[in-house]
Simulated assay, not measured.
Amino acid sequence: MSAPAEQAQITLQSPDGARATLLLHGGQLVSWVPAGGAEQLYLSPTSRYGAGVAVRGGVPVIFPQFAAQGDGPRHGVARTRAWELVQQETGDRDALAVLRLQDDADTLRAWPQAFALELTVRIAGRTLEMELAVENRGEARFAFQAALHSYWAVEDAARVVIEGLQDRRYLDSLRGEEGVQHSHRLELLQGQPIDRIVYGPAAPLRLVGLGESSTRRLLIETEGFDDAVVWNPGANHGLADLPAEDWRRFVCLELAQIEHRPVLDPGEEWVARQTLTCL
C-alpha cells in the first residue's frame, strides 16, 4: 500500500522495471517492488502521518538510540523528522536517491549533538541496496546506535522462518533474558509476540516463507551492521496504527548496530549497508 498522496514522496524506477517509493518524512522507504516481482514491504493501512509521528511500516531509520536504550525519544529523532532529497538519478541499469538529515534546534533539544545522516537507496533488478552514513558535525565526540527497521511483507508470519542466526547470542527484550540461538532456523510461533536482539549475525540472513503457495525467499547481506532484530507484536498487540489481524502480514527483520555503539570524533563518519535480494 502506498502512502497518502499528500505526503512528499520520491519515486524511483529502474530501466528493468524495479520500483521504490520513499517519504521525505523520516527518510523512509515505504515500497520496493523488484523487477518482475511483488511488493516486498509492509505498510500499515492505518498508519498515522504528520510532524513528530512515526510511520508504521516500510524501513524506518533508527538513530541515535534503539528503543528506550537512551535518554531521548524512543528509537531516536530520525524517523519523525523531515529529510531533504539531495540526489536522484536513473542510470542504464539502476535508479538511486540520496536523502539527508542534519541537526536543528528540535533535534538538539532531544539529543544535544551536531550530526548529519545520509541515506542512499539504490534499486536494480531484484536487488535493493541501502546505505546509512552518520557524520559528527560537532566539536565533541559522541556514541550512537542505529538500525534500518525493515517491515517485510509475508503471507502469514506464523509460516515464516529466519535462517542464518545459528550460534548467535540474543536478548529476549520481552522477558529480559539472554540465550543462544542453537537451531539453524528461527520460527515465529502462532500469534505469539517476539522481540529479540541478536548479536553479531556475521552470516547472511534469509527470510523464507513456508507452504506450497509461498515463493518468499529474501537474502539479507550486510557490511557494517553487527546486530539484527526480529520483531512481531503478535495477535494481541493493541497497536492503534496496526489493524488487529495485520500482525500476520509482516515480520520485522532489521540490521542494526546496538551492542557496540560506534564512537565518532568531530569530523568522523560511520557507514553501514544492507543488500536485499529476492531469490
Rank of each mutant, 00 (worst) to 15 (best):
S2Q: 11
L174D: 13
A140H: 11
F66V: 06
A133Q: 14
H149Y: 12
R273A: 14
V121K: 01
M130W: 02
D92I: 02
E139I: 02
G91T: 07
A158M: 09
G17T: 08
Y199I: 12
H260M: 05
G17H: 05
G58C: 03
G36N: 05
Y170H: 14
E178H: 10
I10F: 02
L205K: 00
R126S: 15
S31V: 12
P60I: 13
T21D: 07
P64K: 01
Q166L: 00
R196D: 10
H260T: 15
D195P: 09
L117S: 12
F142E: 12
R249Q: 14
S213Y: 04
G224D: 13
G27D: 12
E254A: 14
L239V: 13
G91A: 07
N136V: 08
T277Q: 12
A256T: 00
S14L: 05
N236A: 15
G267A: 04
E131R: 14
P201K: 04
D246N: 11
G164P: 04
P64I: 07
Q257A: 09
L189A: 15
R217P: 02
G27F: 02
A5V: 08
S2G: 06
L85E: 15
P34W: 02
L117W: 14
G26H: 03
L23W: 07
G191N: 10
Q69Y: 13
E84R: 12
D16G: 01
L43G: 02
E131V: 15
G57F: 09
D241S: 05
A202G: 06
E223L: 09
P34H: 09
V160R: 05
Y49N: 05
Q69T: 03
W32S: 09
L24G: 06
D195N: 14
R100Y: 03
C252H: 09
D104E: 10
A116S: 15
D172R: 06
V33L: 03
A3R: 00
L186D: 04
N236I: 00
A82T: 11
A235G: 00
V86H: 00
R141E: 15
L219A: 09
S47F: 01
E139P: 00
Q88P: 05
T90V: 15
T46A: 13
E223N: 13
W247N: 03
L210Y: 05
G138L: 05
P4F: 10
L279E: 15
A116P: 09
L85D: 01
R217A: 13
G191I: 10
A147N: 04
I220W: 01
A147Y: 01
P45L: 10
G70C: 07
L210C: 10
A95E: 14
A256E: 02
V77H: 02
P204N: 14
Q88R: 11
I62Q: 01
Q87H: 13
G179K: 09
A105C: 03
R81S: 15
L148M: 09
A256P: 01
E6Q: 05
P4A: 04
A157C: 09
A82G: 02
A51V: 12
Q192Y: 07
V180F: 05
G91H: 04
S150Y: 06
L43H: 04
G17D: 11
A82R: 12
R126D: 14
R100I: 03
A202S: 14
L41I: 13
G52Q: 11
A110P: 01
L188A: 06
D172T: 15
D167A: 15
R196V: 11
G72T: 14
G36V: 02
T222M: 07
T120L: 06
G238Q: 08
D265K: 08
I162P: 05
F66K: 00
P243R: 10
